[in-house]
Design a protein around this nucleic acid. Structure first.
Lengths: 148, 148
DNA sequence: GGTATACCGTTGGTCAAGCCAACGTTGGCT
DNA sequence: AGCCAACGTTGGCTTGACCAACGGTATACC
């Protein structure tokens, strides 16, 4: 495709959506090649940074819906990358803990995703990449703080 | 939600995908309030800029799948915003032409979308918005030119 | 102490987007 | 004439994001 339509291209929303599609596809391909999914990385990363947490906490930190978190944690448990145990202090909760294997997996996914970022942002310099990330982060912050 | 996880936030792919979600929602809400969809604007804009064209051409220029284009053109025809006529020079083709009402509609949607852009990019200055649009356009160009 | 209220994990389902395969029709090429 | 490519159209598939509701549990308030 040779997308034109200046009116379309001038719309940030359109650019973001289209770019997101490419990003999404690249991520899915990259992670798919090692039998993982984006959600796996998100959850492992959250557990690694914040330590063991309830599924609700994981859900909040990753922005993944509670119901979807259940399925993802199931998959991670099956792969022995995390452990799910009832919280003795609050029996409503399950405490999810990342395992050593989970940490190794996280590093593997980190590597894969770094390569994907490179591919995605190929035409941009290092400075420009930082710019883009900074701008997007600000936009995202604005909307997540006031609405979500 | 109070999304943290620096590892996640540092990934451009993640930022783009999340931001895209907000953008998509805002666009859907904005256009929904005047009973339109993103695809409508895309098609009307393409027809306005390039003149009458076959559905295949519209499809290419907007990046909308051929099969989805059929449905969208149907809707636009129902609203008398475009006309679909067989091409006498090539009977495989339908020539889609925007009507005067279609142009008025396009301007209406343009207005709505401008407001949506404002809302989406609220935390950014005008210069920063141009920066963001420029960076995204370059990323998008890179991937659309080499992969289809 | 008992009741209402809020939270947690889980199940099940919805909805729209983006795709893809296939078909009949038509055009172009050789 | 015969083959291949393009077009419009139908139908369906997959996935991500989301929502509603439930039983079970903790907390707050009276």
């Amino acid at each position: 495709m040779e997308i034109g339509a200046t009116r379309l291209r001038a719309k940030a929303s359109w650019l973001i959506n289209k770019t997101s599609l490419h990003a999404h596809r690249l991520v899915a391909e990259g992670l798919g090649s090692v039998d993982a999914r984006g959600y796996h990385f998100a959850i492992l990363a959250a557990l690694d940074e914040y330590g063991p947490a309830s599924q609700a906490a994981v859900s909040q930190r990753t922005g993944i819906d509670r119901s979807d978190t259940v399925a993802m944690v199931n998959e991670l448990v099956d792969q022995r990358l995390v452990v799910r145990a009832p919280d003795p202090d609050d029996r409503r909760r399950n405490v999810i803990t990342i395992t050593p294997a989970g940490r190794r997996r996280l590093e593997q996914l980190e590597t894969v995703l770094s390569e994907v970022q490179d591919e995605l942002l190929a035409p941009l310099s290092a400075a420009e990449r930082r710019q883009l990330v900074g701008l997007l982060a600000r936009v995202l912050d604005h909307h997540t703080s006031q609405s979500g």
